[in-house]
Structures are given as C-alpha cells and as structure tokens.
Simulated assay, not measured.
Amino acid sequence: MADDDVTQDIAAEVVTLFGAINRRYAAEAQAAAAPHGLTAMQAKALLAARTPVPMRRIADMLHAEPSNVTPVVDRLVEHGLLERRPNPADRRGKLVAATDAGLTVIADLRARMPFASEPLANLTPAERVVLRDLLRRAVD
C-alpha cells in the first residue's frame, strides 16, 4: 500500500471516529433529555446556562445563530428551568441562567450523560494535552 493510501485511510478513520463520538454524544443527550420532556438541543442549552451567560454564549456552544436559540431558551423559560436576568456588564443585554429547578435537571442530565460529561475519561492528562494540541494543529 502506498504512503498516500495509508494517509488517506488514517484520515478516513479519524473522521469516522469523530462521527462516532458525535453520534454517541447525541444519543446520550437525547436519552438524558427525554425523561424531562426536553429535546437534546434544549438539554444542551440548559447545560450551557449552568451559570449566567449571554445568549450569544449559548448559541456559540450549540453552534447555532442566536435567533435560532431564542425559541429554545424561551421554551426552557416556560418550563421554569431558565430565567433571563439583566446583564450588569451590558445594560442592553440579558443573561440567561438556570433556576433552582434547572440546576436540579442539570444535575440529573449530567448523571445520565457520563460519556458527554467526560468523553476523554480513558485518556491520561498528558494524552488529553497531546490530543488537544494535535486537533488545534489540524484545525489551523
């Protein structure tokens, strides 16, 4: 097998592994969200608002536009899991934060999502650093 073929095979396997990680995370998130009557996207938004954050931060964490996240947050507010607060650093902006009920659901979600909570659990701290550094190089 030529070096180019090996390189392409390795790249394909890495992409496949990224896909497997993503699918496992998504399945775990959906399974954890369902008992609370939430979608996986709502669960991810709730987890992102564990501490008060601007809506933009939630959108960034969900890889979505803020306008697409607004209905997700609205639904969580309706469920009493999130609340909007004034942003002391920006009088025009609002922060989104979990309520006490939201924090209870977050604790349950995290308990039901062991892989998503710690996807690198099987790696040593040194391996995690190497993986991070390699992924940064690949993205750059």
Rank of each mutant, 00 (worst) to 15 (best):
L103V: 05
A97G: 10
V130R: 15
P125V: 08
L103T: 09
L134S: 11
F115T: 00
L95D: 06
K94H: 12
A116T: 05
R137L: 14
L135A: 12
E127T: 07
G93Y: 00
L123M: 08
A111H: 02
L131K: 11
L123R: 04
R132A: 07
A126N: 10
N122P: 05
G102Q: 02
A98N: 08
A107W: 07
A101N: 05
P86Q: 11
L95S: 08
F115R: 01
H79T: 07
D90R: 10
R85V: 05
N122W: 04
V105W: 08
A116Q: 03
R110W: 04
N122Q: 07
N87L: 07
P119C: 00
L135W: 14
P125F: 05
R92D: 11
E78N: 03
P88T: 15
D108L: 00
D100W: 00
L135C: 11
D108I: 01
A101S: 06
V129S: 14
V96K: 12
L134N: 12
R110M: 01
V130P: 13
R128L: 08
D90W: 05
D108R: 06
A121P: 06
L131A: 12
L134A: 14
E118F: 00
P119V: 02
A101K: 11
V77L: 06
E83N: 12
R85L: 15
A97D: 15
D100E: 05
R92V: 06
A116W: 02
R91K: 14
R112N: 01
D90H: 09
A107D: 08
V129H: 14
R112M: 00
P114N: 03
R132G: 12
L109A: 04
M113E: 11
I106E: 02
P119W: 10
L81W: 06
L76M: 09
P125M: 06
A97F: 10
E83T: 15
P125R: 04
A121W: 02
R84L: 10
R92Y: 12
L135Y: 12
P86E: 10
E118Q: 04
F115I: 01
R84G: 14
P125I: 06
D133L: 15
M113D: 09
H79P: 05
T99W: 11
T124L: 02
E118G: 07
D108F: 01
R91N: 11
N122I: 03
D133Q: 15
E83D: 14
V129N: 13
L103W: 08
L135N: 10
L131Q: 09
D108M: 00
R85S: 09
A97I: 12
V130Q: 13
D90L: 09
A126V: 09
R110K: 04
R132K: 13
A97T: 15
R91G: 12
I106T: 02
N122E: 05
V77D: 10
A101L: 05
R112V: 01
M113S: 13
A97V: 13
V77W: 10
A101T: 07
M113C: 12
P125E: 04
L131W: 14
I106N: 04
V77A: 10
N122T: 07
P86L: 09
